[in-house]
Amino acid sequence: MEHAFGPYLKQLREQQGYSINQLAEAAGISNSQISRIENGVRGVPKPATIRKISDALSVPYADMMKQAGYLEVSNTAIELQEAPDWATYKDRRDFKKMLEDEDDLMFDGIPLDDEDKKRIKDVLTGLFWEAKQMNKRKKKNDPDERP
């Protein structure tokens, strides 16, 4: 399925009155990257880039991820993968929520401050959605996969 992320981004940017340079500065990415995305030269950006753009435009991240094709939409709801039967409560805990809510998290014995948690969340979000996208492509192209 072809996703028209570039025109979508351009429309959002123009609706909010941003120039390419203004959006690039607000998002902390290059103006040439914004231009390449909008013109379809670059294609769909990585989730971490989408996060920066969504924050700069004050657009819900999930909406942009849907438009980019990272999230499948069915009957206007995001399809969520069920946790396996063997998963315990701790297995099901939302790691993103834990990073946002927990005060005393540590890594290798060092307490994480809010900036550390935000960086970890951003990196994990990007990796998570990239892996989901690769799995989706792999399943589509797998000749052994049965419907």
Score class of each variant (00 low, 15 high):
E38M: 07
A62M: 10
A68P: 01
P60Y: 05
K46V: 05
T88L: 09
I78W: 11
A68I: 00
R42N: 09
P60S: 13
S74M: 11
I53L: 11
V44I: 14
R36E: 15
E82A: 08
P84Y: 07
L71N: 14
I29H: 02
V73R: 02
A56Y: 02
A87T: 00
A77S: 10
A62Y: 07
D85Q: 07
K90R: 03
E72K: 09
L57D: 05
A87C: 06
K90H: 04
I53S: 06
R92K: 11
D91L: 13
R92L: 08
A77P: 00
L71A: 14
K66M: 15
E82K: 01
V73H: 02
A83F: 12
T88Y: 04
I34L: 04
S30D: 04
N75W: 06
E72I: 06
R36V: 11
A87V: 01
A56K: 01
D55E: 13
G69Q: 01
E72M: 13
D91V: 10
S30F: 03
I53A: 11
W86Y: 09
E38Y: 05
I34T: 06
I50Q: 00
P45G: 10
I78V: 15
D91Y: 11
I78E: 15
R93V: 12
S32R: 10
G43Y: 01
T49E: 03
R36W: 12
K66S: 15
I29V: 13
Y70A: 15
R92H: 06
D63C: 03
G69V: 04
I50S: 00
Q67S: 15
T49W: 00
P47K: 03
K46N: 07
A48W: 04
L57S: 07
Y89E: 12
P45S: 10
